[in-house]
Nucleic acid binder design. Structure first.
Lengths: 195, 195, 195, 195
DNA sequence: GATGAATGAGCATTCATTCAT
DNA sequence: TATGAATGAATGCTCATTCAT
């Protein structure tokens, strides 16, 4: 039996939600607007999603899967820690660079959700962060990263830097080329700011 | 006539707002709750604030002033870049460590505000970030920081790392000692993760 | 072609409706639940019934037929008015005593329907009440009942008493033996409360 | 401190609810309609009532209080059981005869409420029924009513008869004079139908 | 006959803000 | 200044019914 998540209308509605949220803002993204954008009736939404929160979680889960999948491929094909980190940054930047709506949604709008929803979003994020942990642990093991590195702090530094960089870019209306920043961001993460 | 914000009721209301938001969450922080906590009538709020958004901005502005003031003192008393950064991190951690309500409000609750409000919050943040820029520019100038450092990116790295570290601490219910992390965070920012 | 109500699916759906209404209550007895209980698709309902109201009317009509049929047999086999009334009460109590679901549906749930539906239910009820009128008129004629009895009022007294007695029993979760009450109810109707 | 129930707007809204329910039916009695009829804003309703159900309970409670109060006066001023019952019937008929809207609401519309609300309505009713029980017990004691009378069944007979009589009158569009029926109803209850 | 995915109208409730006192 | 009763706009979700297959 086909699960709902694989049906075309499911994806249609998720994609519509990204567009509606990006263009109207989180608090102005009414279910009826999403339904209209998806080209379905309001009630149809509820054949595929339990409630509005379920749509938002799904948006995040579906899109996050892209990041996770890409990062998994990067890990499989690259064994050098520096390469892995550069490619991770580059991938993260590129996915959001290529989908301006998605960038607005993940960096600004979804963060307006309430604490409960954000906790559920964080759970989805964990999969991604655990792959980052793998990069860091492998790097420590093979001597590429500094011995005794606190993996949790390092993860927060890497993710915090990437996230803040993208958020600033979005808040500046994406008016400069995010892609060009990855080498420099990579260098900062690897070597810090010290001369 | 004194300006309104020096009057006791202005501060009463701002402090009440921090408590109400921390204890109830952003979306459950109704004006009537804040008024009750401040011991004034609902209508009185509007003698001191234009609207609800104005209260929230004021909360952020009043509390941010502490960070800015402290950081200014740090800059005045320390000329070494590494010292300045360590003390900045330490200060940032300590202020939020000492006021659990404030930590919840700045790291979680106020981020649920809409884009417009967050843009205004960012403006308040600018003063703080420009002091950080000063640290970075001074460091580059005197050779302590790497030549050719992209100040904007470096600022995003420093702030992103600090912010993500604190947010993780708050989301983990502040159950470990944030203060102990500053030396390690400082080291990461200075030297990166590379061996 | 047989009329629809003789086909097995018609009865299947009516019986399913009684069960679903009794177990879920009138307002939670959605067409889809009735269809599921009956083992047919939602759309199939509409091959046998004009609309949801039509199902409910049919439930009442089908079940009421039992009362009417039994009462007709009682009238055919008993000519004494007091006997007829006792047996009528006894029959009314027994049918609902033996089908707890039906008792809930007729005494509580179906009364939640709107005025229009209740008017149509009353029409179905008329057949039953006109047999009661026959008992009363016969009784007046042969001198068993008081001369000059207002048949309409007497009918309302008999039916109101029976109905209120059963409703109280259902609202008390059918926790006492309804059957045992018929002689006493009969006596009240025949002789009133006066010493 | 004045309680809400004593404020003029409380009564205004209750009376508006009776009119709106009687004229539009239970399921078409939207809160906004009640507010409009009461001449207040929708939100004002919620300053006086917890929710819609609370309005309906209050309607019943407020109006039932009239019956209870009148019946209490009757008990105080009449010691003869037959008199008491006649006056009770007469009072019950007269109150509903004098307020056609209220008659529709209590006999038809409020019965469409769900089981939970009806249970709460029944609790309000209990006060009235317990006064009736007092009449019956006093009557048995002083020998006016039949020795060994089952008070519960007698109560159901009296109330069921009154209720069914009024409901029939309402369903017949109140087109005959209800008041004239009380002596006959009283006789039926006292003496039964037997010759 | 039978299916079940799709439809879309309809409504209770909250809460920031006002303004008469 | 200070009050707090009153306002009224705005929206997620359900479910009876349809109709293409």
């Amino acid at each position: 039996m086909k699960v709902k998540r694989d049906k075309p209308k499911y994806k249609q509605i998720v994609d519509a939600a990204v567009i509606v949220i990006a263009e109207n803002g989180y608090h102005q993204a009414q279910v009826s607007k999403i339904a209209k954008e998806a080209g379905v009736a309001d009630g149809t939404i509820y054949l595929y999603f339990k409630n509005k929160e379920d749509i938002l979680i799904s948006v995040f889960r579906e899109k996050m899967a892209i990041f996770v999948h890409n990062l998994q491929v990067i890990l499989d094909n690259n064994k050098d820690t520096s390469d892995r980190l550069l490619k991770m940054i580059d991938n993260h930047f590129r996915v959001l660079h290529d989908d301006r709506h998605l960038a607005i949604v993940t960096q600004l709008e979804l963060r307006q959700s309430n604490k409960e929803l954000r906790l559920r979003i964080n759970e989805v994020l964990k999969e991604y962060l655990s792959l980052l942990d793998t990069i860091l642990r492998d790097g420590i093991e093979n001597g590429e990263l500094v011995a005794g590195l606190d993996v949790r702090l390092a993860r927060q530094m890497v993710f915090g830097t990437i996230d803040e960089t993208i958020t600033s870019w979005v808040m500046n209306d994406q008016k400069y080329d995010l892609m060009k920043l990855s080498p420099e961001v990579h260098k900062l993460i690897m070597n810090g700011v010290k001369a």
